[in-house]
Amino acid sequence: MSLVNLAHVCSHLQNASKARLGLTSIPVSKLHVNLVLGLQREGFLSSVTLGGVSPPKPFILQSQPDPEELEHMAQKLKDEPWQAFNVGGGEKTELALGREKIDSVSVPQNPARRRLWLGLKYWNNEPVLKNMKLVSKPTRRIWLTSQDLGKITRTRESSYVKGLTHPGECMFLTTDRGILEARECVERQLGGMALCRVW
């Protein structure tokens, strides 16, 4: 688990959002994938796609369902709104609403050529993800307990980690339950190694 690569990802995402890019790619690793999914869960990223050296097709260029199909789906959902929740397994929903269109992405056989493509978000002409910084450094890992995290999420300093004082600031930690946000760790009373803070 190299934090050097994570540091590169952090500065790359900052640079990409400063340049107002819509889509960018980072190298693939299990740590990156989990962290990036955490970022998407917190709403910093719009999409996360595993792909090759060329970017995946943008959403607008992907094949869309026909208008009649969409109309049928809308009517069906209006009559049976529970279908939206995929009750009774995939086949039943498919039967009721029609087949879901999933754009296939070609992932190279060679793992070294795989990239993780991230969709960046912007709101009011401002990037949603503006700052991303490492907390643990490659030469100094920092482990935090849930008590520490309780203080940090309440904007107080603990274990030489500054509190989350910026508006909307998040911190990600790697725990034995996967990569989680600091507030989630507090809720589940988990400690772990701090990775990065995002705001």
Binding site: G43, K121, N124, E126
Partner: peptide, 14 residues
């Protein structure tokens, strides 16, 4: 030019 919590939440879809 402060970012308000409401705005941040809307930007993140929360």
């Amino acid at each position: 030019e402060q970012r308000l919590p409401d705005e941040i939440a809307r930007a993140r879809g929360k």
